[in-house]
């Protein structure tokens, strides 16, 4: 209930109103031990400024890169990270969990 992700959505709105391209990443599913709960947000702008988190810092780098693509073409993306995932060897979750992330542009 502590609504600590609301300031992130307020930041997303403020950045967009300031004229920046902005994307919001949201944790939509988790399996086993995941660092951040479902509903957690990360907001990214076109200059790779970011605020919030969707993991303990393990996958944010990749998400920022993907977010730049979303800001560019406006198409939402679904990303999945976990130990079984191929990318996991580079950026996966050391806790052994799995997470699914939805990335969308603020239009």
């Amino acid at each position: 209930m502590l609504s600590n992700d609301t300031d992130i959505l307020r930041t997303a709105e403020a950045w967009r109103r300031a004229g920046k391209g902005v994307a919001i990443a949201t944790v939509i599913e988790t399996w086993k031990s995941a660092p951040r709960p479902v509903g957690s947000h990360l907001v990214i702008d076109e200059d790779t400024n970011f605020f919030g988190s969707v993991s303990g810092g393990c996958v944010e780098g990749v998400i920022i890169t993907e977010a730049l693509g979303v800001i560019e073409d406006g198409k939402p993306r679904l990303l999945e990270f976990g130990v079984a995932d191929e990318t996991a060897w580079q950026v996966g979750l050391s806790c052994g969990g799995r997470i699914r992330i939805y990335v969308e542009r603020v239009d």
């Binding site: 959505l9 307020r10 709105e13 967009r16 969308e104 603020v106 239009d107």
Partner: peptide
């Protein structure tokens, strides 16, 4: 997400 929708969501919270 449309900016208007995001703005409405934030307004409800406020």
């Amino acid at each position: 997400m449309r900016l208007g929708l995001l703005s409405d969501l934030n307004a409800e919270q406020a």
